[in-house]
């Protein structure tokens, strides 16, 4: 698959503050690319630069093989986006909002096409209601419809699940998967929730304080060679004594909430379990801790 989006050495300064610092990444065609970081990490600033809302201080952005600063209009015709919460025209109906944004994207949509778009996001029966009467979830879905109405190749969603209830989050997740798997769209989805990204993203970039922390395939990031393992036993003293007097001692991690944790090679876990049992440790559970979550927090924690 070819790169649909390339970002090279992107930097943005706001006076004294460096919001994005020498950031480089690529998004491949057809994938869902998770863009992760805590609040204030620089995700929205980066996305705003991708949409030309903010001018980069330095760096280069290429979308569909074209430089963004030179081919802005051609590129944006094929990009749909929701930036933070989708603030639409509250005094217009859902139908009018979609028609307005399709025309701004240079597309003349028929009334039927707009109704189909509304039906796709589950708002067919509220087409003629003013947006001010919509719930947050409905606004989010209408925002998505506005982002999709011109059939873009690349869809950028900035924190699309913000403010949604659990049902809304599940609907948004299903929609992202549908757009990617069924319609072959490329999606860049930002979030500060790793669990959300793990469920939908193929690749992932984690940033902190504007800098890249790690980038890679989600499966590779989730399943590294090593895994943090949490041991639960009814006899902690026996288990600790055994571990401190064995070769596993070097794998011991500081205890969290009284649990025993070790950093083990995945291939060593069965042998570790066997030795515990052989030395009389009553193993209640031996559970891999969410390694990516740990990693994410360790890298982004202040």
């Amino acid at each position: 698959m070819s790169d649909i989006l390339k970002v090279r050495n992107l930097t943005k300064d706001f006076k004294e503050l460096r919001a994005v610092d020498d950031l480089s990444f690529s998004v491949k065609e057809g994938e869902v690319y998770g863009f992760l970081g805590q609040n204030g990490a620089g995700k929205s600033t980066t996305i705003r630069m991708l949409l030309t809302l903010i001018a980069p201080t330095d760096g280069y952005i290429e979308i569909f093989g074209m430089p963004l600063h030179q081919k802005r209009k051609e590129i944006l015709r094929q990009v749909g986006a929701i930036i933070e919460k989708p603030d639409l025209y509250r005094y217009l109906t859902g139908f009018e909002n979609i028609r307005l944004f399709s025309r701004l994207s240079g597309v003349k949509t028929t009334d039927n096409q707009i109704r189909e778009e509304l039906a796709r996001v589950g708002l067919a029966d509220r087409a003629e209601s003013k947006v001010r009467t919509y719930s947050q979830g409905m606004k989010q879905r209408l925002g998505l419809a506005c982002a999709l109405v011109h059939n873009p190749k690349l869809i950028i969603l900035d924190e699309p699940t913000n403010g949604l209830d659990p049902q809304g989050i599940a609907d948004m997740r299903r929609m992202i998967i549908h757009l990617s798997k069924d319609l072959g769209k490329t999606l860049l989805v930002s979030s500060h929730l790793l669990s959300e990204m793990e469920m939908v993203a193929d690749s992932m970039l984690i940033i902190n304080k504007g800098r890249k922390v790690v980038e890679g395939k989600v499966q590779e990031l989730i399943n590294p060679v090593n895994s943090i393992v949490e041991l639960k036993t009814s006899d902690t003293a026996v288990a600790t004594s055994f571990l401190e007097n064995s070769s596993w001692k070097t794998c011991l991690l500081p205890s969290v909430n009284g649990t025993i944790r070790l950093d083990l090679k995945k291939t060593d876990i069965p042998e570790f379990n066997r030795q515990l049992v052989a030395h009389g440790v009553a193993v209640q559970s031996l559970r891999p801790v969410h390694s990516l979550e740990e990693f994410f927090l360790s890298q982004t924690r202040e």
Binding site: L51, K73, L76, K85, D87, Y89, F101, L104
Partner: peptide
């Protein structure tokens, strides 16, 4: 309103 970013992000 927050709609300026939607407008300016269009072609």
């Amino acid at each position: 309103l927050g709609t300026l970013r939607l407008l300016a992000g269009r072609p």
